[in-house]
């Protein structure tokens, strides 16, 4: 009797078997239908999406071979206009890549870092701290940044953690919601179609994510910056509870993976720095990074050491915030020498 009862647990009646089979067949059909839908949706979304720098950077990142990066830079335009991975690779002998994305703040930096770590195992990660702002707002770059993320848990977490309104969440989950109006732009659709079918060379593959700014500041801008009143500029990057939360995530992930995390602040125009209470901003960053034993290289405190003289700002910057290729060369060289001293094989 006992044996029979045990058997009944595993052997289904004819009717139950048929029901179970029907259930599996229906489940299978639903999965197939959803798969077809999402494949076609992805195709249509790609056809209609207007390219911009966020997509170009993501395409290049996606094209990198697995585990091909030793030194990874993360942050935003402050990072990719300042730290030149080609220069740094030449000096350190390690492969470097700048995976920063335009305009992104620390919350998005974290989610993109999470995505990159699925493919890369860097030994050193350099976080540029001008991204210590947030939460991120909706704008074309942040929207494109999220649109270009592969669909998955990380993308959904980014949308739901950063954006609180259901309208924003809905719109960001479906890129086609914002891009669908492009269907009548036949030039765009043709170009995208050719890119999908024939493929296209990733834009930043040679520069390794570095953005080479060739232009210098105009004399008007130089003059304007000299006469800037302190009330005209608020330095937005600073340590806050919101930023600490995402910094800790980055820090913990690096620690877990044995990655050497280094924080840097790219140099800005001296006139800016002098007219804000930069000392207190610097102290805030330093205290945070010291508390967890992370090195902090603040180039706004190292003008003399790097060799940036007062008269150099006009020629070595493109704007109040971004250095140009001449400024970048100085910083990249200095930073490479620093890296060479800390990287151990």
């Amino acid at each position: 009797m006992v044996t029979n009862r045990q058997h009944n647990l595993f052997i289904l009646s004819f009717k139950e078997g048929r029901l179970l089979k029907k259930l599996f067949v229906n489940l299978f059909k639903i999965i197939v239908a959803l798969a077809i839908f999402f494949i076609l949706l992805e195709f249509v979304s790609k056809l209609l999406t207007k390219d911009n720098d966020a997509f170009k950077r993501r395409d290049t990142l996606n094209s990198l071979p697995k585990n091909s990066v030793d030194i990874m830079f993360i942050g935003n335009s402050h990072s990719y206009t300042t730290f030149n991975p080609v220069e740094i690779s030449n000096i350190t002998g390690k492969t470097a890549y700048n995976s920063a994305m335009p305009s992104q703040l620390l919350d998005l930096v974290w989610f993109n870092f999470e995505i990159e770590l699925k493919k890369q195992s860097p030994k050193v990660v350099v976080l540029e701290t001008f991204a210590f702002q947030g939460p991120s707002q909706r704008d074309v770059f942040n929207d494109s940044n999220i649109d270009s993320m592969p669909f998955g848990i990380t993308k959904l977490s980014a949308i739901f953690s950063i954006y609180k309104s259901s309208k924003d969440r809905f719109e960001l989950m479906s890129g086609i919601y914002r891009q669908h109006g492009n269907w009548s732009d036949s030039e765009l659709v043709n170009e995208n179609f050719n890119n999908i079918v024939y493929g296209k060379k990733p834009s930043y593959i040679e520069s390794k994510g570095f953005y080479d700014i060739d232009s210098k500041m105009t004399s008007d801008t130089v003059e304007k910056l000299k006469n800037l009143k302190p009330s005209e500029y608020v330095f937005k990057a600073r340590v806050s509870d919101y930023n600490k939360y995402y910094f800790n995530k980055i820090y913990r992930e690096c620690k877990k993976r044995g990655i050497n995390l280094i924080c840097v602040m790219a140099p800005m125009n001296k006139n800016y720095v002098e007219k804000t209470d930069y000392e207190s901003v610097h102290r805030g960053f330093k205290a945070l990074f010291d508390s967890v034993g992370v090195d902090f290289i603040d180039y706004n405190m190292l003008y003399d050491e790097v060799g940036i003289k007062d008269e150099d700002f006009a020629n070595e910057s493109n704007s109040s915030h971004h250095v140009n290729k001449y400024g970048s060369k100085k910083i990249s060289e200095h930073f490479s020498n620093y890296l060479a001293s800390v990287i151990k094989d």
Partner: peptide, 24 residues
């Protein structure tokens, strides 16, 4: 057949998503 009707529905959904007047 399953695939025919699935495609028909998916195409209708995509037509609505792409050609619908909504969004902004």
């Amino acid at each position: 057949p399953f695939l025919t009707k699935t495609f028909a529905y998916i195409i209708l959904v995509l037509v609505i998503m792409v050609f619908g007047i909504y969004g902004d």
